[in-house]
Design a protein around this nucleic acid. Structure first.
Lengths: 338, 338
DNA sequence: CGACCGAGTGGGATCGATCCCAGTGTCGGT
DNA sequence: ACCGACACTGGGATCGATCCCACTCGGTCG
């Protein structure tokens, strides 16, 4: 219908009685245009409802004004769902007010990696944000090789060479454990996150340090690693109870795992917080709705999203100028489970 | 570093000793290429690590191979969060295996609408998915005018002219109410969703129909509309209890509102399900973790995402060929709150 | 009064792909 | 021996923008 072709810069130029270059200058805010010419161009643009074709523009400027946010889907489906939503909101907030758009890429499968590589090489994005990186993730190295600006939420290891932002996992976990010590708990176990992720290792390290700082032993028997899922949390809890039936507190490295642990504790007839105190991590929706509501360590996830976005945009605008490493603080939200 | 420019089709052609057109033919799988030429081209591509520049390709084909998913952010932040995550997963699943990418656009503000319009006009997407449309949303009409392929999750009204997919809200709500009737409840109130959204109206209509079908009156005093948020649910519950202290069941049009209602019921000393039975809608994470866990109406949100994506892709490939309207079934998940 | 400068302008080349079309070579048929 | 059909090929134009550069036209200065 209509049949009216979208106007191009040429149409506008003809209508305004000027050359294409002048129209382009007006569009890009160059001062080298007479007031008269500018007025004519703006009038023509308004009359024709002209909007510049951004694909054509991208071709010559080699800027697409879009960035990719890559999320491993297996994980978003399981535990950390609210985490990813919050990151997305933060990224989107960081993009607001700029002309940039967000390409969301859920990677559901290792086999999709080739396609992803090809896509990223094809020049459709100016930069990449990576979330939930694992120790042996191939993607960060690949992006480094491609020379595509990249920022990570989290890091592969404490020696991460790429730009990255994360919350202070060690301090957050330590605060949780100190809180339990303050409440007079004696035997504090931990359900750790995956040890191939820095978040998992660092929270475990925080647990260790807080115990040692208080002069307690950080026994191996008090550690059960899981995978950030509810079922994983349940199994880990069962194992801990089998190994140390005398435990009176648990620090879980995520709320979802804590929810699983809670279910297992109840199944075995332990009361929370009466018999066992429980602290989670993330301060997600889940923490507010369990029975009892979970004490949890809040990390500013949305702010992480905003920050990685800011760093990426800066790195794109002026390579080499951005801060490589930002750590954001956590805070403890006490509720009824401890 | 490296300084090596990305190879172009010209580089490849030179390397393979053929013309640009032949390389293009190989890339696009044309049969009009000799086996020999094809082999030479493929070898050159592999040696150079060539990946076609998709921006340049888009310019001439006027296909971007990306679609936009537009989500109003005010709402994603509040109630329906898990809903949006599920839609996103579904859309992403629907895109998997195609060459298309997902552009996620969170609209946080009416004032952003101009920018959005401009963006959509600029030809950066092949089509648009719209989620959570309101009765008076300006965007759908605008997209219709632009002639950009569009599919809605949900609809503005039962007379929706655009392609759209939704679950059977009337039937879902009716099933919830019948379930409460079956349990012997006599006075069944409802916390309705926003009445400027079809989902809100239809679920309310389902409540009405089920009551009437059972020969009961659908009294206005038993209806309290809210806005899909937890706080809204709490307030609506308070109002209902004030108006009809004798109510013994509530159907809430979302789990999050049900969670708010649950808190208010407990505050006023009513036991669930003993004194008041409660049914929610969405079968979200929240429903599984409240105390007691919520009976809820499950709608196949991820499938809605997949379906709108499928329809959109088909509409893009072959305008006019897609199904305009798909309704997906709901199911009741009984838990302890009823 | 001519040389010079700087503001303003627009034509042509360019970005990297696809597509149209004219051209070449081979083969089979009469 | 000639012709047309068919498979294959590649140069040029094109998509719609930006950018380089050469050009015009007042005004200023020595």
């Amino acid at each position: 219908m209509g049949g009216t072709q979208r106007p191009t810069i040429k149409t506008v130029a003809a209508r305004a009685g000027v050359g294409r270059t002048t129209v382009s200058r007006v569009l890009n805010g160059s001062p080298l245009v007479s007031a008269q010419a500018r007025a004519a161009v703006l009038a023509a643009i308004a009359e024709l409802n002209y909007v510049p074709n951004s694909v054509a523009r991208s071709l010559v400027t080699s800027r697409t004004h879009s960035i990719a946010l890559v999320i491993p889907e297996s994980e978003s489906r399981l535990g950390g769902e609210p985490y990813f939503s919050a990151v997305i909101r933060g990224v989107s907030a960081g993009l607001a007010g700029t002309k940039n758009q967000l390409l969301l890429i859920l990677v559901r499968d290792e086999r999709e990696l080739d396609r992803l590589t090809e896509f990223l090489t094809a020049g459709r994005v100016d930069g990449v944000l990576l979330v939930s990186v694992h120790r042996d993730d191939p993607l960060p190295g690949l992006l480094e090789k491609l020379g595509l600006p990249t920022v990570l939420a989290g890091r592969r290891s404490p020696a991460e060479p790429l730009h990255h932002v994360h919350s202070d996992n060690v301090a957050g976990a330590s605060a949780a454990v100190r809180h339990l010590l303050d409440r007079g708990r004696a035997t504090i176990a931990t359900i750790a996150g995956p040890l191939d992720m820095d978040a998992g290792r660092s929270r475990l390290e925080g647990w260790r340090r807080a115990l040692r700082a208080a002069g307690r032993a950080a026994e191996e028997a008090l550690i059960a690693p899981a995978d950030f899922t509810e079922e994983g949390g349940r199994l880990a809890m069962r194992e801990l109870l089998a190994r140390r039936p005398d435990l009176d507190a648990v620090f879980a490295a995520s709320d979802v795992m804590a929810a699983g642990a809670l279910a297992e504790l109840r199944r075995q007839g332990r009361r929370v917080p009466g018999d066992v105190a429980l602290v989670g991590y993330d301060d997600s929706i889940v923490a507010r709705h369990t029975d009892p509501p979970l004490t949890s360590v809040r990390q500013p996830v949305e702010e992480i999203g905003r920050t990685i976005t800011g760093i990426l945009l800066q790195e794109i605008a002026e390579p080499g100028s951005a801060r490589r490493h930002v750590v954001l603080p956590t805070s403890l939200i006490p509720r009824d489970s401890s």
